[in-house]
Computed example of a mutant assay.
Amino acid sequence: MTGVLRSWLYVPGHRADRVAKALAAGADAVVIDLEDAVPPEQKAAARDNAVRVAADRPADPAGPQLWVRVNDPAGPWGEADLDAVSGTALHGLRLPRSEDPQLVREVADRTGLPLQLLLETATGLARAVDLAAAHPGVAGLGLGEADLAADLRVPSAAGLAWARGWVVVAARSAGLPSPVQSVFTDVADLAGLRASSEQGRDAGFVGRSVLHPRQIPAVHEVYTPTAEQVEAAQAVLRAAAQARTRGEVAVLDAAGRFVDPAVVARARVVLDLAREPGPALPAPPEQPAGGTR
């Protein structure tokens, strides 16, 4: 699976039957969970299942990416998880309760796998910028909203709006992809999922973790640009390309919209989210020595 990943389906690692179903459910990524969804007596079985799936699954560029959420490396099961997954053919790891940049560096070096850091405590949130830049292996940031709300003593999801904005800023300031939205726990409330996902999209998230396959279609719909948005983005790039052939970098397009490099960059984002290629733009005209004013 290439392009921006819209849906990340969690599946309990100790349920081998569910892992197989999850891989065929249509999500862009599957996250085998070794942490919260697995009872203590099943931790070893979940770990073994994850390693087996990573080893046995045939390469399929059109299939979902395969990630694993390990247990807290500082907790009782984390060390065994890291030993087991190191060097496997996983696309990466989700690291819960990320707080310590030095520990992130140690995990990245030890496993050799990309890391998505889950910020689930006040300390992790406060250190988001340092965590994002802790190691080249850090592939993204995200929030674990249920744990974070408990740690911050926030009584409702509305109280985390500022934290969502902050994690978007921290990720982008480090040059990381826009973050993935946390799960919506009321699996039966698809209207609520859709509304919450629209809020996340508008806040700068580009996809969402999900707990059940029935949540995937709504998430994909929200996080995939419409045909009209794609056509508008393509029109922006066409106008920019035509302007550059005339030695210009800013122009009014046929619809009277102002197109400059910032508008072009936003159009590229839309096409990236839509998995649509955009035309290559000619090189910008050279500026006179000393620049312009």
Rank of each mutant, 00 (worst) to 15 (best):
W166Y: 15
V263N: 04
D28T: 03
D72T: 12
G165K: 07
W67G: 03
G256I: 07
L34T: 04
D33E: 11
A232M: 09
Q199A: 13
Y223A: 01
D33N: 10
A267T: 02
V154I: 15
S156G: 06
L211A: 00
E286W: 08
P279F: 10
E35C: 07
V154S: 15
D253G: 08
P288Y: 09
R201T: 00
Q229W: 05
A54G: 07
V19T: 04
H220G: 01
A280G: 02
T2I: 10
G3L: 00
D81Q: 13
V129Q: 14
G26E: 08
P40L: 11
A133F: 05
V206Y: 01
L93A: 09
A80M: 11
A280C: 01
R238K: 15
R275T: 02
V70I: 15
Q181S: 13
V138D: 06
R246F: 04
V11Q: 10
E231A: 13
T245V: 13
A283T: 09
T111S: 01
R208L: 00
D260S: 06
P96V: 09
Q181P: 02
P284N: 06
A29N: 05
A134R: 11
D83M: 08
A227Y: 00
P177G: 05
G63R: 14
A227G: 04
E221Q: 07
R127P: 03
T2P: 12
A37L: 10
A149Q: 13
V68Y: 13
A158W: 11
V236Q: 14
H220T: 02
G159M: 14
L117P: 00
G140H: 09
I216A: 00
R52Q: 12
N49A: 09
R266V: 06
G63Q: 11
A84P: 03
L93W: 14
L252M: 14
P114Y: 09
P285E: 01
R246K: 15
G144W: 10
A44P: 05
L34Y: 14
S209M: 04
L148F: 05
P217Q: 00
G200N: 03
G256H: 09
H135A: 04
E248H: 15
L95S: 06
L160T: 05
